[in-house]
């Protein structure tokens, strides 16, 4: 197994190299005239003739690809990922300061997704091909079929505009002042955790209030997936010999399901949940925009639409590391949970 992990880790630099070359190549299609538009806001930049050309030269946008890449790589090796025009700070700190927000949202969302998803999946499997099974599956697939921005905007419409319960944003104004004050220690930069560590439960509740709507949105959209996995895994287990034996022995259905079947059925669910956290980390782009929450997804989306060269590459690099390492962790832990799996 150690050899497997090392092999995968050794591939990481190769993949990162490939990813950055891929992005550089894509952006190279634009040419300097379009790349420069990230550096200027509008026609005012041209109020002095030739100003744009000067900006192109200043930032080296007209240099050939290998020169640009070499310079960028040299800086990265020194720990400098460049300057983010969208983030208005160095790319590295722009990413690191936004990541906790996204991580927090993903972690909160995974809780209802997994628990409700498993619960519904078991119900569905137990009532295989009965009405409840079909109903739950259609209900979950409707969620899966919803565009996230439509659902999110509906949530705002109902729970903020109509009922006033769950405001958009990250924290309310007063609480934000508490969080930014000097007494409040930011251990993790995830406010729901920090507030408990600081014993400020008012902040915690406020943060939760801002989290509910986006979490429900994400959860409803992702339930179907977990439900599906749990259901089929459960069905598979229920056909196994030992379950039949247990039933034949006259154990009650509850005991069969809860004691014997569920435990074994949840192994693949665990893997999928791990993959799902990773997918959620990369899949919050729209939710963050709709609910006006800070975060990595929104940052990368803005960088992409504004052609902010350095931020796009930095973001892609970060995501790749996240995906590669995340998947490695998932695979390894899968192998640890389920001894039947052999890593190769």
């Amino acid at each position: 197994m150690i050899a497997y992990i090392i092999r995968r880790l050794l591939l990481l630099p190769l993949i990162l190299f490939g990813v950055t070359i891929l992005i550089f190549g894509m952006l190279e299609l634009l040419g300097p005239e379009k790349l420069v538009s990230a550096y200027i806001r509008g026609p005012e930049a041209e109020k002095v003739a030739g100003a744009t050309q000067k900006i192109i030269e200043k930032y080296g946008l007209d240099k050939p690809l290998p020169v640009k890449y070499e310079r960028w790589l040299g800086n990265v090796l020194k720990g400098d990922l460049g300057w983010s025009l969208v983030g208005k700070q160095p790319v590295l700190s722009a990413i690191l300061s936004r990541f906790p927000y996204t991580l927090e949202l993903a972690l909160w969302a995974i809780i209802p997704v997994v628990f409700v998803g498993i619960w519904l999946g078991i119900i569905s499997a137990v009532h295989h091909n009965k009405f409840l099974d079909h109903f739950l599956r259609v209900f979950a697939i409707i969620g899966w079929s919803f565009p996230d921005f439509v659902f999110g905007l509906f949530m705002i419409l109902i729970f903020y505009t109509q009922l006033g319960w769950f405001p958009p944003g990250y924290l309310s104004f007063d609480m934000e002042r508490v969080v930014t004050s000097s007494q409040f220690v930011n251990y993790t930069k995830m406010v729901t955790i920090d507030s408990i560590l600081n014993l400020r439960f008012d902040v915690f509740l406020d943060a939760l209030r801002h989290l509910i709507a986006p979490v429900i949105t994400l959860a409803y959209l992702w339930w179907a997936y977990i439900l599906r996995i749990t259901r089929s895994s459960m069905l598979e287990v229920l056909r196994k010999e030992y379950i039949r034996t247990a039933r034949a022995k006259g154990l009650s259905e509850d005991v069969v399901i809860n004691k014997h079947a569920r435990r074994n059925a949840l192994i693949p669910v665990a893997t999928v949940s791990g993959q799902m956290i990773i997918a959620l980390l990369a899949g919050t782009v729209i939710i963050e925009s709709v609910f006006n929450r800070p975060g990595l997804g929104r940052f990368v989306a803005m960088a992409a639409t504004q052609l902010d060269y350095m931020s796009i590459i930095g973001g892609a690099l970060f995501y790749s590391i996240l995906l590669v390492l995340g998947n490695l962790i998932v695979d390894v832990s899968y192998a640890l949970i389920d001894p039947r799996i052999r890593l190769q």
Binding site: I156, Y160, T161, P167, S289, V290, N292
Partner: peptide
């Protein structure tokens, strides 16, 4: 800076 108009408007309506 709140880019989403619907969000901005909702916050104005609430007096936030």
């Amino acid at each position: 800076g709140i880019d989403e108009f619907s969000t901005r408007k909702a916050m104005l309506e609430k007096g936030d």
